[in-house]
Design a protein around this nucleic acid. Structure first.
Lengths: 202, 202
DNA sequence: TGTACATCAGTGAACGCGCGTTCACTGATGTAC
DNA sequence: TGTACATCAGTGAACGCGCGTTCACTGATGTAC
């Protein structure tokens, strides 16, 4: 019983606040320090023990988001095909794209927070998290296409996924069931792979 | 003298508010009805004569943004090459992409407002403005590639441009001088056109 | 051409709201002796 | 094993802010006669 009444000390409030922040975002609520504290069942000023200011909480959520997204993409890379077998590039890229867009649609507010505002370039941990993602994509593309223009190609393909994600989030592309979206990602990648054929062949 | 002192009636406050809203966005200021009214030199409640609420002003700005973006893209289509000559698809697509991304970087806050929030599907005028853009892209792609998969290809290419725009806006891709950005768009499109070659040829 | 009056486009005070942040505080914890 | 005390992690009242929106209002305009 002594543990069932709310203890004065929380135990791991930092983690609880992060979780609450993500919940709050995913519930579509407006994001604020106070709202997060409320959801965590704690006074409005308690977060200041763990985060310097609102921006710091913001950043911590974004960093966690980047970590989660990276994990999703790595899972997609490991994929259903045996890792030993060299899967076709188009397949791998489709899998990555589907995972990327699925993440964005499953956790739209987190995704927006990660990408949707100009990030403070001084916030090195946050910058690093996004660069780490970028590097991971670069390496995947490099291993698929051991050619010269990898950097351009990887940017292009990242952009496709990123654009598809945002266009869906913003309701510019419908409908939104996750199967439809996955199919659309697949078709888009397919169309790009066929691009050169179309050009020369009609 | 009687016209130089501020008249009670503004003349065209609606247009002035729209202009002020866009200025305010482009100046990087937080966007609010009150701030816009302030910038237009008018009382905080004057906008309510012309816009039902904050959302309506928001929408009007987005609609104007879509119109401007469409104009930019049409200019890019008309382009430096003679309109009579059938330009190479890659060239046309690059021109469109460069114009798209340039618009986003030149007017980042407007672009974010246009795309960066889930748009009210009830707001028919706003929905229509974005669909009009979509159609215009579809038609351009259709005329470049008279094949079957136009819809997929046009979504894919729109996504590339959209993704490049947002990745630049959010500082995920650097540097940001407009020439660099244009070059990057060009390279990305080039990499996609070469995609099939890489796959089959190495 | 002049006047009465409806309509329109602004004003300015006021409301309640939630926000980020500060401050002095207090309850709990853990460590030195 | 006890006790004193520093440290830590919370509380709760309070601040000033800008926001969206309402309300009753007033100054300007234009139209009917």
């Amino acid at each position: 019983m002594s543990t069932s009444v709310k203890p004065y000390h929380h135990g791991d409030l930092r983690a609880a606040l992060l979780a609450a922040a993500i919940e709050s975002l995913e519930a579509g609520e407006p994001f604020s320090l106070r709202a997060v504290a409320r959801r965590a069942g704690v006074s409005p000023t308690a977060p200041y023990r763990h985060f310097a200011d609102r921006e710091a909480l913001d950043s911590a959520v974004a960093i966690e988001g980047f970590r989660d997204l990276r994990a999703d993409l790595e899972a997609a890379l490991a994929g259903p095909t045996e890792p030993a077998a060299a899967a076709a590039p188009e397949e791998v890229i489709t899998a990555l794209g589907v995972a990327y867009v699925a993440f964005a649609l499953r956790r739209p507010a987190v995704f927006r927070l990660m990408f949707g505002n100009e990030c403070d370039q001084e916030d090195s941990e946050r910058v690093h998290a996004s660069e780490h993602l970028h590097q991971m994509l670069n390496q995947s593309i490099a291993s698929l296409f051991p050619g010269a223009n990898n950097s351009n190609l990887s940017i292009a393909l990242w952009s496709v996924a990123h654009g598809l994600a945002f266009l869906h989030l913003d309701g510019k592309l419908r409908p939104q069931t996750s199967d439809d979206v996955a199919a659309r990602v697949k078709s888009a990648v397919g169309a790009l792979f066929a691009l050169n054929n179309n050009t020369s062949g009609g």
